[in-house]
């Protein structure tokens, strides 16, 4: 906003700083817990101040999950390919729906929205993807099911194209006999950078954080596991042993620092995102600009 309200700007900074603390403080508490000896927490309570520092959770994580580096690579690969494909599909459909006078527009919008309400559930999805399209135990099992396009993002894109791209510009372009596809690349995409970057971010996050596809479609191919699937599997395993008294028959499950590992898992999975986020935002916006000019 063009600002004359300096007071408001200061106010914004303060409030956002407070919200940042609000968002991050629980993680600080848990990080401190992850490096505190577990018995100390049990006896003396959780605290923001580290006592009895103990890195066994991280040690366990590193020795327990040997494929972790490879899993990172797989995650990056599927995230990059997935996000690019996702952007293309989302923009194509969002742009089509943004045409107010498109024949069948209402029906198509409805067609997209309907998928947000109704779903056939886990078993039918699995049958379609695994038995009809044979994605099981392949890289496509990570890439294709569910994440390739989100109807939510399509509708966001559509709304953005309709409200934030001035009609006057589109009409002028039409006068200059610019094609409909050309308008997407020359006008709509350059004018929609913030939303495109946001949707790309959401899509990347969805791929990065996904473990469901790994669990459903990579039952036997451990070599294709993504980092989140490895971590989630570990966490489920720990939960299982905590909740099932009989399972403690397996000796030495007692050594697992359950609470600490959980937090260590969170740290390991969040850190990369935190590190690339600012870079990602800027580079991505720039990439879109270049693409738009060339298109």
């Amino acid at each position: 906003m063009a600002g004359n309200g300096k007071g408001f700007r200061i106010f914004s900074n303060i409030v956002l700083a407070i919200l940042t603390i609000f968002a991050v403080a629980p993680f600080v508490l848990m990080f401190v817990s992850s490096i505190t000896e577990e018995g100390t927490i049990m006896r003396e309570g959780y605290s923001f101040i580290p006592r009895d520092v103990d890195f066994s959770a991280y040690k366990y994580l590193l020795t327990g999950a040997k494929g972790i580096v490879k899993a990172y690579g797989m995650t990056i690969l599927v995230t990059v390919i997935g996000t690019i494909a996702n952007m293309a599909l989302t923009m194509a459909l969002g742009y089509l729906l943004s045409k107010q006078d498109l024949p069948g527009r209402n029906f198509l919008s409805f067609f997209v929205f309907f998928t947000m309400l109704f779903s056939g559930g886990m078993v039918p999805s699995y049958i379609i993807w695994s038995r009809v399209f044979k994605v099981s135990e392949t890289f496509f099992g990570l890439l294709l099911p569910n994440l390739l396009m989100s109807p939510f993002n399509v509708i966001l894109m559509r709304t953005y194209f309709t409200t934030n791209v001035p009609k006057e510009i589109l009409e002028a372009a039409e006068m200059d006999s610019c094609s409909q596809v050309g308008m997407l690349f020359r006008i709509c995409i350059p004018l929609s950078k913030p939303m495109i970057a946001t949707i790309a971010l959401f899509s990347a996050l969805a791929y990065w954080n996904d473990w469901v596809n790994g669990m459903y479609y990579l039952i036997r191919r451990n070599d294709l596991s993504t980092i989140q699937y490895v971590l989630n599997k570990m966490q489920n395993q720990i939960d299982f042993f905590r909740q099932t008294a009989e399972a403690s028959k397996i000796a030495k499950t007692t050594d697992i620092p359950s609470l600490g590992v959980r937090m260590a898992i969170a740290v390991v999975s969040i850190l990369p995102i935190l590190m690339v986020y600012p870079f990602f935002q800027r580079q991505f916006v720039r990439g879109i600009v270049v693409g738009g000019v060339k298109g």
């Binding site: 695994s130 135990e137 669990m215 039952i219 036997r220 599997k233 570990m234 299982f240």
Partner: peptide
């Protein structure tokens, strides 16, 4: 042999039990 980890087993078994091919 199909090795299933305890934590994910319930879900994976349910899926495998729907699948005559694999």
């Amino acid at each position: 042999l199909i090795t299933l980890a305890f934590g994910d087993r319930a879900t994976q078994l349910t899926l495998l039990l729907t699948d005559p091919d694999n």
